[in-house]
Nucleic acid binder design. Structure first.
Lengths: 229, 229
DNA sequence: ATCATATCTTTGAGTATTCAAAATAACTAT
DNA sequence: ATAGTTATTTTGAATACTCAAAGATATGAT
């Protein structure tokens, strides 16, 4: 059994790998800062995980998950995202807080309980932030959504996913009415000002920095009416 | 924050203390075997917990919970029992397995989530085994139920609580129809054979050893129709 | 090519938890 | 009261995880 700590390293490694394009190895320093530990700690942990066959690691060449490590990471991710959705849907918690709750619960949920939760929720495909939920077989379908920073302008878009899961960011998204499901149009972009001007359905126009806009993914098709994968 | 390990020691100490009448200190050896560790481990842990103000410990005189330790133990117990009931009532898990599930979840549930669960269940007073649930203020009301080994014979009794939470024992209780809520009469007892003969409503008579009968608590009043405390 | 800088690894040490086994204290039965 | 048993404590060591700081390597700018 992998410890909570090991599960956290694998999950983080997966996330960092994804967020950087998913092509090359993850530098130890990036992993260390994502984990909130000093680099030396990450180095020795990666050696241990390499011995356990969960990562592939070569000194000074960064790390990547092994196939087994990736499966484990996806299992943790499945637990995390199903728990998040359950906390919102079944217990009515605020979506801005469930991320941190799930960070603790994801290590304590057995498969038995997890599959009950999955069934109770009707085998959902995305969590409250729009993050896709890996299947019990460890497959993850990542929809090809684009962000408000690059999508077509002047066209109605449906918010599908919010990448940044910081509590304050989520509260901001909430206030602006940009939760998944919301309808929004990008009026235009100002490269010099580094902003996008958007109109959330029924609201006045606002502008977002490109960095913020890049955190909000959208789709022209309404995913609520699209058959899930 | 108390670690899971510390929470487990406090919970176990509370349980052992209760099960032995609750009067004197708990010998280190009893605690160690209840925790599944060697006595030396329990000794050093008790020193640490005494330094942290969670137990009162004197060399070779056993341990007891301090007021703060007892509050913490009751909080853990509340989490454990609410989680058990939630798993049975909301997720439909078998009552024979929820004890071990709750043993892991009890350390990962925040107060925020716990109070949601409590509300969703309608502020219940007992868990699926009939164990009373401490309040959020850390008060525990222990009903004065008697066991099948000592209750009045020839009188209808309602099963209120099953003390032994071993999976196989619970499966046995299930098979015999002796879950909390069941109606049962003790026909008689045979001191020489060390058995009680019981009749579960609508079934043929069976006999139980006194040790087993002592694990099942009953009440002449139907607790389902009695106002909860 | 070479020096400064940034990144990574190593080393030594600390905390929390555990065990095995030796040392000590308490209890019991005569 | 004393020998023998039983319970408890101590000691030394292991594992998992962490940090601080020193040492090694790579990068990249001239």
């Amino acid at each position: 059994m992998a410890s909570s700590t090991v599960e956290d390293y694998l999950k983080t490694l997966y996330a960092v790998h994804q967020s950087t394009g998913g092509t090359s190895n993850v530098p130890i320093g990036r992993l260390a800062s994502a984990m909130g530990v000093v680099p030396g700690t990450a180095t020795s942990m990666m050696k241990a995980l390499a011995d356990a066959g969960l990562v592939e690691y070569e000194s000074r060449a960064g790390v990547r998950l092994s196939p087994r490590g990736e499966q484990l990471a996806l299992h943790v991710l499945r637990r995390h995202r199903l728990v998040e959705l359950f906390l919102v849907s079944a217990l009515g918690l605020d979506w801005s807080v469930v991320h941190e709750e799930a960070d603790r619960l994801e290590h304590a949920i057995s498969d038995r309980v997890l599959e009950r939760i999955d069934a109770a929720l009707g085998h959902p495909t995305v969590d409250p932030h729009g993050d896709p939920i890996p299947t019990s077989k460890g497959k993850l379908y990542e929809p090809e959504w684009v962000s408000l920073a690059v999508c077509e302008t002047g066209v109605k878009q449906h918010v599908t996913r919010v990448l940044n899961q910081n509590i304050d960011f989520l509260r901001f998204v909430e206030r602006e009415g940009l939760r998944p499901g919301a309808v929004v149009t990008v009026q235009g972009r100002d490269d010099a000002a580094d902003t996008s001007t958007i109109v959330v359905h029924g609201r006045k126009p606002t502008s977002l920095s490109m960095a913020v806009a890049a955190q909000i993914l959208v789709s022209t098709a309404d995913p609520a009416t699209t058959a899930p994968a």
